[in-house]
């Protein structure tokens, strides 16, 4: 077993994603403590992969893998892990990493930590902080065994320390690609035609607390009075109360408005990822322990309907 750290890179439209720079930066810090190297694994051809601060970057230069293929990526990572026997394998807790991390754990028997917010070394062992239960609790875990898998929440570490100029080394695919059961068909673009919430100066964001589709109108009225647009957290969109173009967060859009007025959003880590840089965050929620109050600038523990209606009268 080596002391190296394998970072499984994520890319989109030919560019390495920020979460990868974040992980490489963190990996450098850990590798220095472990006395190992940081190896980045980039799967897919046509990806600009020469700007990581890794000790080595391996690139599987297969045009067929430029687009994410969960089956192929999983088996390639498994093969590389078997060959390199790293101490730690890092994934993003993203649409891609969520397909790979726990699968690799099931295959190899190595422990997996998900929702990872931080990793550190204590007496040569890893201690990992996981943001569980929608951000309400942090679990500090010590993985046992020789290899550990960590799936890291985007935005957990700064990107700067992961930026460098290591030239990628091309490697052939370690697995045969002709018997795959999963085939990439086509990319799906965001649906056009709706307002673009990423360019709005003011957003009124509604969460599960809004209760039902029939109550969206109240948020619309308030937004109109404020010159804002209505955005939403994932459960509201999954329930079909608002279109997906309005979704803020990990699986939605990242926004940075001047005002983000939140009605009935508890502040799960996935949502915070999309809005934590807003200039003024105001949260109204009935749960005084909601994690959003740790991020918002102003908060009130109150019935959102009563507050929204009272605001409408004053505007």
């Amino acid at each position: 077993m080596s002391k190296d750290i394998l970072v499984v890179a994520e890319h989109f439209n030919g560019k390495i994603a920020d979460v990868t720079f974040e992980m490489v930066g963190k990996a450098r810090e850990l590798a220095a403590g472990l006395g190992g190297k940081v190896v980045a694994l980039v799967i897919g051809a046509g990806v600009e992969a020469n700007d990581l601060a890794s000790d080595a970057t391996l690139q599987v230069n297969e045009p067929a893998l430029t687009e994410f293929n969960p089956e192929a990526y999983a088996r390639i990572v498994e093969a590389v892990v078997q060959e390199q026997a790293p101490r730690l394998v890092m994934f993003g807790w993203t649409s891609m990493g969520m397909d790979l991390a726990a699968w690799l754990s099931g295959r190899t028997g190595a422990p997996c930590a998900a929702y990872v917010r931080d990793l550190r070394l204590e007496n040569g062992g890893l201690v990992i902080s996981c943001q569980a239960y929608n951000g309400k609790l942090i679990a500090e875990v010590e993985p046992q065994g020789e290899m550990t898998i960590a799936a890291c929440l985007a935005g957990s570490f700064p990107t700067e320390a992961g930026r460098g100029a290591t030239a990628a080394t091309s490697i052939p695919s370690p697995i045969a690609l002709d018997s795959l059961r999963v085939r990439f068909v086509e990319a799906i673009q965001p649906p056009p035609g709706d307002v673009d919430i990423t360019t709005q100066a003011k957003l009124v964001a509604v969460g599960r607390g809004i209760g039902g589709k029939e109550n969206i109108e109240l948020a619309e009225e308030l937004a109109e009075k404020l010159g804002a647009v209505v955005a939403a957290s994932r459960p509201v969109v999954d329930a079909g109360w608002l279109p997906r173009t309005r979704q803020v967060g990990k699986s939605g859009l990242k926004v940075k408005p001047k005002l983000y007025l939140m009605l009935g959003i508890s502040g799960a880590p996935e949502h915070l990822e999309g809005m934590k840089d807003a200039e003024l965050i105001i949260a109204i929620n009935t749960d005084k322990k909601a994690p959003i109050f740790n991020v918002a600038h102003y908060g009130a523990t109150a019935d959102l309907f009563e507050v929204a209606e009272a605001m409408l009268e004053l505007l």
């Binding site: 028997g109 190595a110 422990p111 997996c112 930590a113 201690v127 943001q131 569980a132 951000g135 309400k136 609790l137 942090i138 679990a139 500090e140 875990v141 010590e142 993985p143 046992q144 065994g145 965050i281 949260a283 322990k289 994690p291 959003i292 109050f293 740790n294 991020v295 918002a296 600038h297 102003y298 908060g299 009130a300 523990t301």
Partner: peptide
Amino acid sequence: SGLVFRKVAPPVVSGHAEMI
């Protein structure tokens, strides 16, 4: 899981909203 739980606790927060 191969994970030993050391501690489970609410997050230590650096800031908190000014509550109205």
